[in-house]
Design a protein around this nucleic acid. Structure first.
Length: 450
RNA sequence: GGCGCCGUGGCGGAGUGGCUACGCAGCGGCCUGCAAAGCCGUGUACACCAGUUCGAUUCUGGUCGGCGCCUCCA
């Protein structure tokens, strides 16, 4: 296992990855709220944390990745009401879409995908503990977290409680002791069709408490990495951290790892509320899964990443260089230059998961390999691509059908007779059929172009 | 108003106090019957102004521009 560091939002610096139980890494990444289809912005954390898991496993860690699904909240009630459906049914449908859409990334599933609605008892238990410890109070069926009861509140997102905009919080504002307080449990309101019994009456959990409860259920307290989009740092993660620390006297997670936003149009963040979204499924349809994945990994995870058709097209073009390299692989032992690049690839990922630097190393490997004769074996390249979920780029090519081979043979005969006009005409015919001919030293090669 | 981030060559995008990032596109060459692929070479790139320094794209201060969070948001 090499030394691995990851940037932590709380401390603002890279922290060494330290495991609680030797070799085991727990990662909890906040997933989507399922009131509509996911967009490419939602796909970024899914990809980042899935690929991070692959890398850590390759380094010898046993990784448990948890990505939750928020399937009860105001947005869902509202969307269901507008659609004239039950929120329960809408949430189930959108969860199924989310699973199907992210399955198309072919990165596998997280180890656990807990639903808020299936974690109600642990949530109630956690709230109960907060109340009995004096960190929360019930008021007319709502339960609120007493923010000022926790002196460290604000550390994670670097906010000073006394300088915070004391929200124009509409709902429940009148019931709070302090405008800063946030809801742990919300009493059922007329028109809400999903709710549970609790010691405080019927209602449903607040947004933040579900993650504290689900993370603890599956990973315990004090696990290694908690992740999600940087837009969640406040208030969501701040509140999650506060709840667990207040209830358990221990930090929820060691490292808080946040990905930057995907932007669309100017430099605006892609978000459902702004309406400037591109559906994940649509983008995969248009540019292909490989290009989408490569694009998401082509920038450092903490930087903003702009969505633009030209950028996705460039990603697809970059992929070609890898595919071409794959055609040229042989059986030789990789030389030192290749091995150095291979090592640089892993070193880049170990240094705050620097995927663009890792890709540069991968291309360095390809350049070195392209200069080798005989060509190196596929092992190292396959290993690197495998972590990125792109090993499929090396999959065998489709065999040319008999009539295409026949045309190529006729062309070869024409070439042997130095009948260039006929040879070029046959090459055009092959191109029209979607096959490119390359005259290599070991005879003509047929490459499928579409 | 508070907190945080960013501004790199045609495009995307890393990184560093002095030595080619990388990919795509372009240009020249090698190879090829011609191509393709590959290889080699190629671009006064680091928003602006000061300062620190032998030397700054990289550090410090300021200016301009853009973004995120402070309310649901990956």
């Amino acid at each position: 296992m090499r030394f691995i560091s990851i940037h932590d939002t709380r401390t603002g610096s890279a922290l060494p990855l330290q495991t609680g139980v030797e070799g085991r890494v727990g990662i909890y990444a906040c997933g989507p709220t399922v009131y509509s289809r996911v967009h490419v912005g939602n796909a970024r954390p899914f990809v980042v944390f899935s690929v991070l898991k692959r890398f850590l496993e390759r380094e010898g860690y046993h990784v448990t990745l948890v990505v939750n699904v928020t399937d009860v909240n105001d947005k869902i009630y509202d969307a269901a009401r507008v659609a004239g459906r039950s929120s329960d049914e809408l949430a189930r449908e959108m969860t199924a879409h989310y699973i199907a859409d992210t399955d198309r990334l072919r990165l596998g599933r997280p180890d656990f995908e807990p639903r808020a609605t299936e974690t109600i008892q642990p949530i109630i238990g956690l709230i109960d503990d907060l109340v009995s410890r004096g960190h929360a109070y019930a008021e007319q069926g709502d339960v609120y977290f007493r923010v000022r009861s926790l002196p460290s509140y604000g550390d994670l997102s670097h906010r000073d409680v006394d300088q915070m905009d004391q929200g124009e919080g509409v709902e429940g504002a009148a019931l709070k002791e302090d405008p800063l307080d946030f809801a742990l449990w919300k009493a059922a309101k007329p028109g809400e069709d999903v709710f549970w019994d609790s010691p405080w009456g019927t209602g449903r959990p607040g947004w933040h408490i579900e993650c504290s409860a689900m993370a603890e259920e599956l990973l315990g307290v004090g696990f290694e990495i908690h992740g999600g989009g940087i837009d969640l740092a406040f208030p969501h993660h701040e509140n999650e951290a506060a709840q667990t620390l207040a209830a358990r006297g221990e930090q929820l997670a060691r490292i808080w790892m946040h990905n930057g936003m995907v932007e669309l149009g100017g430099h605006e963040k892609m978000s459902k509320s702004l309406g400037n979204i591109r559906g994940l499924a649509d983008v995969i349809d248009e540019f292909g899964r490989d290009a989408v994945l490569y694009w998401l990994l082509s920038g450092h995870y903490r930087q903003p990443l702009a969505f633009a058709p030209e950028t996705l097209e460039a990603a697809a073009a970059s992929l070609q260089r890898i595919v071409e390299a794959g055609r040229r692989l042989g059986g030789a032992e990789p030389n030192a230059e290749c091995s150095d690049s291979h090592d640089a690839f892993f070193a880049a990922l170990a240094d705050d998961f620097n995927t663009p630097r890792a890709l540069a190393a991968l291309f360095g490997w390809i350049n070195a390999a392209n200069r080798c004769d005989p060509a190196p074996a596929r092992g190292q390249l396959e290993g690197m691509l495998g972590i990125l979920g792109l090993a499929n780029l090396l999959e065998g090519e489709e065999q040319a059908p008999a009539e295409v081979v026949a045309l190529a043979q006729r062309r070869d005969e024409a070439r042997a007779a130095k009948d260039w006009a006929t040879a070029d005409a046959l090459r055009d015919e092959l191109a029209a059929l979607g096959w490119e001919v390359r005259d290599g030293t070991s005879g003509p090669e047929l490459i499928k172009t579409f």
